[in-house]
């Protein structure tokens, strides 16, 4: 996977919801309510096959934008992204889920939303439900779930999608202590297989444990790229938090 001189700009309109009225008013005043936010500025890097790249940086550094661009969701403004293989994204949990449907139906729906065939999902169905371990709740509508249970099912679907290149955004571990342990083990298993993984995380300990490479973004530019230990050291020195318990907490 190669990213060359990638820039992404968001043109955000000033009003929250674009309506015809505000467009007409704007036209009348001859102004354009466009604010440009440069999320990524000339980012270049390369990830070898099978590497696990940890992406770190403060909020708003452009980490999620980077992942969305690599997945082909956001169009780049300049530069070029080359990706070899099927990209699967774990950017948020429970994408495609519908709260009015049962857990069972949502497993199928979520899997199909991620691009799997129905037969694929059915083949993996038992594995997924065993991993989520929700018991009788599987047949109840998901709006009756606690947020922890919702997260467990969503995570179970997400990690069983069998991706070629996996893009993972932060805050993926949910649920109670027991489930957390299980999901960490699953993550390690995914990283150990010969897959290319991009892992966005604020959990520096996680990145150091799992990643073979580390990319540090700051306000849309690359501040450092190298082995995790030294990049994380530079990063923590930069933000001046020190490697205390807060920064080392989980994903």
């Amino acid at each position: 996977m190669r990213v060359t001189d990638l820039s992404v700009r968001y043109r955000t309109t000033a009003e929250k919801v674009p309506t015809l009225k505000s467009a007409l008013v704007r036209l009348g005043r001859r102004e354009r309510a466009v604010r440009v936010v440069e999320a990524l500025k000339g980012v270049s890097f390369e990830v070898p096959q099978g590497a696990v790249l940890g992406v770190i940086g403060a909020n708003g550094a452009g980490k999620s934008t980077l992942l969305r661009t690599i997945a082909g969701i956001l169009p780049p403004d300049t530069g070029r992204v080359e990706v070899r293989g099927k990209v699967t994204t774990l950017l948020a949990l429970g994408v495609g889920f519908n709260g009015n449907l049962s857990g069972r139906e949502n497993v199928v729906l979520g899997g199909m939303a991620a691009g799997l065939d129905r037969a694929d999902i059915e083949a993996r169905y038992d594995e997924i439900t065993a991993f989520a371990d929700l018991g009788d709740f599987l047949d109840l509508p998901m709006k009756t779930y606690s947020s922890g249970m919702y997260g467990r099912l969503a995570f179970a679907v997400a990690v069983h999608l069998d991706p070629g290149i996996l893009l993972i955004d932060e805050a993926l571990s949910t649920g109670d202590a027991a489930f957390r342990k299980k999901s960490e083990a699953k993550m390690r298993e995914l990283c150990a297989e010969a897959r290319t993984i991009l892992l966005v995380s604020h959990g520096l300990a996680t990145v150091r444990q799992l990643a073979t490479d580390c990319l540090w973004l700051h306000r849309g530019t690359v501040m450092g790229h190298g082995d995790p230990t030294s990049t994380i050291r530079d990063y923590t020195r930069f933000v001046d938090v020190g490697e205390d318990a807060v920064a080392l907490d989980s994903v």
Binding site: Q49, G50, T69, I70, G72, P75, P76, D77, T78, G79, R80, V81, E82, V83, R84, G85, K86, V87, G164, A194, R195
Partner: peptide, 15 residues
Amino acid sequence: MSTAVEPLQVFEPHT
């Protein structure tokens, strides 16, 4: 995992 058969996807700016 065989890299040779995987298609290369390129994302570039577009008009």
